[in-house]
Design a protein around this nucleic acid. Structure first.
Lengths: 218, 218
DNA sequence: TTAAAAAGTAACTATCTGGTGACTTATTTC
DNA sequence: GAAATAAGTCACCAGATAGTTACTTTTTAA
């Protein structure tokens, strides 16, 4: 049996790597790629800077890993949504419109509950979209396409008003949902209260659903 | 009469200052505050770095000056819009709805034609909103309030559907208009063509107007 | 048990970058 | 035309920062 030396530091590669990634996400979400320095991550994660290169290869790859993480979360989120049992007997609208609004609600909830996602996506968009573009095929494209396919299918059944293109509608819904959080800091003075409080977010959700209902009207 | 020495460098304070500001706007719009270094601006504007401190005081003040510039452009834009002569005899909707849609069109056009505006605003939002918040009172607040007042006034006349709050509507319209340009890089693959081409932007405008008409429906 | 691989540390380097002091040159003012 | 002021130049600093080299220690596999 090995003698346990209390001074010996236990090693835990997975946890170390996970800890780096966690704080990297925090930092990158806060300051973007250029606004984050590795020393900051290192200090928070309590690891040696060399470990970033050991586990990820460098700042670029670590940044990419952070993005993969949040996009995977969204994929999971929608996966769970689809598998959720539903009672269709009580809905008053068409099935398609009902599902459409459910998807909008789920998007709002996800965005509301995942500040890291919001910020990382915006950061990448404004910093050139390199990471998102390279992730498109593997993560974003299927998600988006799934949504588009659904809408195009329902379009034939008359859910989407004529003259309205499904791709533009989706982009617009994304805009309605995300804009609120993007400008949350500035909107403080407009709405007169903290736009990120539970009540304010719930209120926003109501308005968003109401707006999207309108968009789907004939 | 003074003898003209061809080696003597002519001085032109206004032009020098304007040149610094111009390239500063380019650089800040491209890389944000942290992603821009003064040497870059200096190289493009062909001035000595010391001049930035001479004319503006430092990086922070230069950044703020860039923001003031683009917000002033928007104020001018809406000022011109209001003063434009209009023929109200041929409109088929209510005056309020007509004006509302004109305001949306003007917003879309402005955003489409001012990439520096779009990017600077987003940069500030993501980098903490410091500059925008401090500009709010003097530039943004009047603009926004003007818009809100107009909508609240029309709300009483039944233009805005009940249950829909004017402030949320405006934020949502901003979202619909701006999201397209924010994600233009990523949307390339979705729309199958350059989202920033003249045709694509015109097409988008049509869709946006159509969407906003829907939002205003009872 | 031992040798190889993986995990972790410390100190360092090359470079960049916002900002400054001391200076020269043109323009304005009196 | 002389003094004062504004415009512009040059060389430099202090601190930060991504990335590296060379090393030690723990874990794993044979």
């Amino acid at each position: 049996m090995k003698k346990k030396n209390p001074l010996v530091k236990k090693r835990n590669p997975e946890k170390t790597k996970a800890r780096i990634l966690k704080y990297a996400m925090d930092c990158f979400a806060h300051g973007g790629f250029h606004g984050t320095n590795l020393d900051e991550i290192v200090a928070k994660a309590k690891v040696n800077k060399r470990m970033i290169y050991h586990y990820f290869g460098g700042k670029n790859q670590l940044y990419r890993a952070a993005h993969e993480e949040v996009w995977n979360k969204l994929t999971e989120w929608y996966g769970n949504l689809i598998q959720q049992p539903r009672d269709f007997s009580s809905i008053s609208t068409t099935l398609e419109e009902y599902l459409m609004l459910e998807a909008v609600k789920a998007l709002h909830d996800f965005v509301a509950m995942h500040p890291l996602f919001r910020r990382l996506v915006i950061w990448d968009a404004i910093e050139g979209g390199k990471v998102t573009r390279s992730l498109w095929r593997e993560i974003r494209e299927p998600l988006y396409q799934h949504f588009v396919d659904f809408l195009i299918a329902t379009e034939k059944q008359g859910v989407i008003p004529t003259n309205l293109r499904a791709d533009h509608l989706i982009v617009s819904i994304m805009g309605i949902v995300t804009i609120y959080f993007l400008y949350a800091n500035s909107l403080f003075e407009v709405f007169g209260k903290n736009p990120l409080s539970q009540e304010a977010i719930a209120e926003r959700k109501e308005q968003v659903v109401y707006l999207c209902q309108k968009l789907l009207m004939k």
